[in-house]
Amino acid sequence: MPNNASNSECLKVQGALIVDRQLVVENSWRHLATEEEVPETGSVSVDLARWLIEKSQLIARQAPVAVRLVASDDVSLLQDDLDDIPMVVLDMVSYVDGRSYTHAYWLRERYAYSGDIRIIGEVYRDQLNFLERVGVTQFELAADQDLQDALQGFDEFSVLYQPSADEGRNIFSRRRASD
């Protein structure tokens, strides 16, 4: 994708992070590949398969361990472990695959998960608003995003028609209440 020269002053950082709608320059989490050894220190995420096999060692580890789910993973497998997981990472391998949205929703609404939910992978400005609504709190943006502009992606809509894992309410109960 060509960048227009007039936008050269925009801040574009590979793997930049938004937490609570603020840009965070330092990203302290490492997402470990399947074969990669777990280092002794530093915050890391591991995939679901590794978590299920090694969870007792991982829980005992001194530094934080997050669990990473791809769209095809079964989020319910984490149900009983959520108290021991400081963050769930949803890996959006393809942004047109909407399963991660339901994963986030279930984590919040069905399993009452109160830790952080971070989205990584194909994360673009135009998905931020919806991702936040289903319960995502941290956003690792795909490369080449204009970060200042991306922050505006949260504020596109002031009206919500339906409840989700946010303060959105059923528009009909809202109208009822405003009578």
Binding site: Y95, V96, D97, G98, Y101, T102, Y105, N129, F130, L131, R133, V134, F157, L160, Y161, Q162, S164, G168, N170, I171, F172
Partner: peptide, 14 residues
């Protein structure tokens, strides 16, 4: 119509 409009979870269905 209203419930389904910009439903955040069902915007990227199969």
């Amino acid at each position: 119509r209203q419930w389904s409009t910009l439903h955040p979870e069902f915007y990227w269905l199969p």
